[in-house]
Amino acid sequence: MRERESRGTPAVIATFFLAAVLTVLPLPEAASLGRPEWISMVLIYWVIALPHRVGVLWGFAVGLFQDVLTGAVLGQHAVALALVAYVAIAAHKRIRVFPPLQQSVVIFLLVGTGALMSYTVQNAVGRVLVPPVWVLLPALVSALLWRPAFSVLRWVRRRFLVR
């Protein structure tokens, strides 16, 4: 039982890695304002799919990774993603059975919460230039891209038998 539970960790890490590459991929100036929060989306997916394995600690670790990746204050994304993971884990049973549209709305709220959290931290250390409305744009794009991302991640989960 114990061995079966810990299957597919490399696949999970690989999806986070891919999300990280998408996060730093160069984009045109206009498009980079609406760059979806890939790492948050992947984290939310894994939390919903495997709440017994991927949780707040994963969120924190992945957040630290994103902090170093984007040169942010160490702990900024860690706190935000830990919060996102906590909320997602608390609501994972409901999110699972939601119809697609409603699920996207929840993703918007979750990613938006994380983005505002990290905006708050950024604001506290005095490194922001844009008004907070702008940080919700990536959350909106994330919500729109949730279905395709969900399908891909579900395929990964089934293909590599992650459980």
């Binding site: 730093v24 160069p26 100036e29 980079s32 304002l33 984007t70 040169g71």
Partner: peptide, 10 residues
Amino acid sequence: GIEPDPSRQE
């Protein structure tokens, strides 16, 4: 790599 956050020049 270019900083993905457009509000920072790094």
